Amino acid sequence: MNFENIILENEGKTALITINRPESLNALNYKTIQELSNAFENLNNDSSVRVIILTGSGERSFVAGADIKEFADFGTNEAENLARNGQQTLFNKIENLGKPVIAAVNGFALGGGLELAMACHIRYASENAKLGLPEVTLGLIPGYGGTQRLPQLVGKGIANELIFSAKMISAERAKEIGLVNEVFSSEELLPKTKELASLIARNSPMGISKAIAAVNLAGTKEGFEREIKSFGELFEMDDKKEGVAAFLEKRKPAF
């Protein structure tokens, strides 16, 4: 597919999506959200792709936020539709995708940008990254899942502190509170992210897909039951048969 605001590259079993709006620090507008949604859907249906990396162009910004110019004059109904459509079209789609998505946060991840990173399954960040949810400075609240995902990642108290104060935090502080997994230099960020993707890509695609669905239910009444049922279902699948056979035969599995 041809895209205007994103770049899609396939590198073996890993796909790299780069949000490419450097003139606006990669801010999310309607078209970019649609293009990202289409790219993720296509990659989810591509059996040759095992892992997806999401990053921003340049070294200054992952995504600096939503494109405020697009919704500055919205009323209640338009704003609700904006949030609902964005969550359903992109953010929830990423979280529930059948393949792991790793955010390589290479600079500012603010507002919708941080919400986009939080929808991903794993987050690596560069040392110069700055993260925050500044919506209350505009008289708003996060609208793309930020009030729901941030407490799950860092706890309710720290989430309240970040949302209420609207302050930006450093990559190191984000790692301390569990908002990002690891921090690297700008030069190391993508290579280290690809290294992790390569490790993940060696493993059972079906097992990982089932794990994503189970982990997403962690803390709910359905979580344990989903884990049990998925564990049982996998026993009938080729990935389990190959994995166990490889273990018993003392060789690497060929998933």
Rank of each mutant, 00 (worst) to 15 (best):
A103Q: 08
S37V: 06
Q148M: 08
H121C: 05
M1F: 10
S57D: 11
L162N: 04
L217G: 00
I68T: 03
S209N: 14
A197N: 10
V154C: 06
G111C: 09
S57G: 09
N29I: 15
Y124P: 08
A197H: 10
I212A: 13
K229C: 02
K31G: 11
G112P: 09
L179A: 09
L133M: 06
G178E: 10
L43P: 00
A117I: 11
L234P: 04
Y144L: 15
S204V: 05
N106Y: 00
V183Q: 00
G139H: 04
G157L: 10
G219D: 05
K192C: 02
P253R: 05
F108E: 10
E227Y: 02
I52D: 05
N10T: 13
I7Y: 09
I141G: 11
I7C: 06
L131G: 07
N20E: 00
N26R: 13
L248S: 06
R21M: 10
Q148R: 08
G112K: 03
D239E: 13
K210M: 11
G86F: 00
I33F: 01
E70R: 11
T137Q: 07
G132L: 06
P22M: 01
G223Y: 00
I19P: 14
I122K: 10
E59I: 14
V244I: 15
M1Q: 14
V51K: 09
A72L: 12
G132Q: 03
N20A: 04
F247E: 02
G143W: 04
A83F: 11
I208N: 07
V63L: 13
A201S: 13
E227T: 02
L28F: 09
S170I: 12
R60V: 08
F247S: 02
I141A: 12
S186H: 07
F91C: 13
N2H: 10
E236S: 09
S57V: 04
E172P: 11
E249H: 13
Q34S: 15
F224R: 07
G75T: 07
I68Q: 00
S165V: 01
V51P: 14
L36N: 01
E176N: 10
Q148S: 07
E9W: 12
L28K: 03
I169P: 03
R123L: 12
G113A: 00
M237G: 06
P22Q: 02
L25G: 01
V180P: 02
E135G: 06
L116C: 08
G139S: 05
A246C: 00
E41M: 08
N203V: 09
E4Y: 13
N160I: 06
S170M: 11
T147Q: 14
F247G: 04
N106E: 12
S165K: 00
N26C: 12
N10H: 11
A104V: 12
G207R: 12
A27F: 00
T76I: 03
T220Y: 00
A166E: 02
I7W: 04
Q34R: 15
G178C: 06
N92W: 09
G132E: 04
P134Y: 04
G56S: 08
